[in-house]
Design a protein around this nucleic acid. Structure first.
Length: 311
RNA sequence: GGGAGAGUUCCCGAGUGGCCAAAGGGGACAGACUGUAAAUCUGCUGCUUUAUAGCUUCGAUGGUCCGAAUCCAUCCUCUCCCA
């Protein structure tokens, strides 16, 4: 049933290599849409091969937002993304077009569709480093105990080994005075911001997906992935975030002469498969999704039909 | 042909008489996720629907022993060295 108060949003997500890009371009063509990329790596300038960024030809005249727009030296976050994406969605609607939210970064998709409101103050790099140093000094267990004192409830939901989360929760409290538990409650809006419909693409036969991922890595190598990886390797400080992207860091041991190229490529393929698995876990958790199997059905037609009904 | 060594669970690899269904790692599978998310982290992995239980497993067969992945014999396979 249509919800006229809210803006319609068509979401296409799913693990890497399921064909989100090509499908969304085709759909955007027929539905007069523009695409907002939900990809934490494609948003950076350059890094075209490793992030599987679509070429102009593949975009086929469809406008892509939040893609290839940020210098790699800058950090970006889910909170930033949510803001930018909201703006983009409103612009697209204002132009009388259909907004497509397309990508594989689950956290970004959720931030937008759930309308999470993150705390106002941006993370303070210095504080973050200070906390990281503290962790180095007193150890993760001690940090976890600290978190237990601050916010026992949240601590119970975080594994002590997950230093990242423990540190972030401590950071949030030190910076804003809010505990993570409080933030979790505060950030949820009463109502979802968009009248969205979420399509999750996947392969029914996982073996097929994994093969697809493997051959895609081979294609990237043919396209010159090594050159791109070398650039990231030589400029790690400039490519802060990119240096942790799958596709570059796996090749580093080869540049260091520690491993053969074949070994690195195998590891790269494996990391990509593992990543796809994590994406599946995330998308499985989303509620009210339409799960589509690209190896079993005509997804384009199914989405068209459901979308028309939905609007 | 002679000599040396090796065969362990999906893979690598530890284990040399009982505490071994077998360390550790990898993979696979499952999961978590609120400003690093392509990141970070967790669980699980012989079978028996539950097991402080039973069964099957450490190249094969046979043996020693109360008891064998571990000792002995034979066989099979592989690697290396000499010819």
């Amino acid at each position: 049933m249509a919800d006229n108060d809210r803006k319609s949003l068509l979401v296409i997500c799913g693990p890497t290599a399921t064909g989100k890009t090509a499908l969304s371009v085709r759909l955007a063509k027929s539905l007069n849409g523009e695409i907002i990329s939900a990809d934490s790596m494609q948003l950076y300038k350059g890094l075209n091969i490793g992030t599987a960024k679509p070429t102009n030809e593949e975009m086929n005249g469809i406008k892509h937002h939040l893609m290839d727009f940020l210098e790699p030296k800058y950090n970006f976050s889910a909170a930033d993304y949510a803001q930018y994406a909201d703006k983009a969605i409103n612009n697209i609607i204002a132009c009388g077009k259909t907004p497509f939210l397309v990508g594989g970064t689950g956290q970004y998709i959720s931030a937008v569709t759930q309308g999470l409101s993150f705390v106002c103050s941006k993370p303070d790099e210095k504080l973050r480093n200070k906390i990281a140093d503290m962790a180095l000094e007193i150890g993760n267990d001690a940090m976890y105990k600290k978190l237990c004192d601050i916010d026992a409830e949240y601590a119970a939901s975080v594994h002590p080994n997950n230093a990242h989360r423990v540190q972030r929760a401590i950071e949030l409290y030190m910076q804003t005075g809010y505990t993570m538990s409080e933030q979790l409650v505060k950030s949820r809006p009463q109502k979802k911001p968009y009248n969205d419909i979420i399509f999750v693409l996947n392969y029914f036969d996982r073996e097929l997906l994994y093969n697809k991922i493997n051959t895609r890595v081979d294609i990237m190598l043919e396209q010159g992935l090594l050159i791109e990886a070398k650039e990231v390797y030589n400029n790690k400080d400039r490519f802060k975030t990119a240096a942790q992207a799958i596709g570059y860091k796996e090749i580093f041991p080869y540049f260091e002469g520690e491993q053969s190229l074949d070994e690195c490529v195998d590891k790269l393929k494996q990391a990509s498969r593992n990543y796809a698995k994590r994406q599946m876990t995330w998308f499985k958790r989303l509620k009210d999704t339409h799960n589509l199997y690209v190896d079993k059905q005509d997804c384009e037609k199914v989405i068209m039909d459901i979308w028309k009904e939905h609007k």
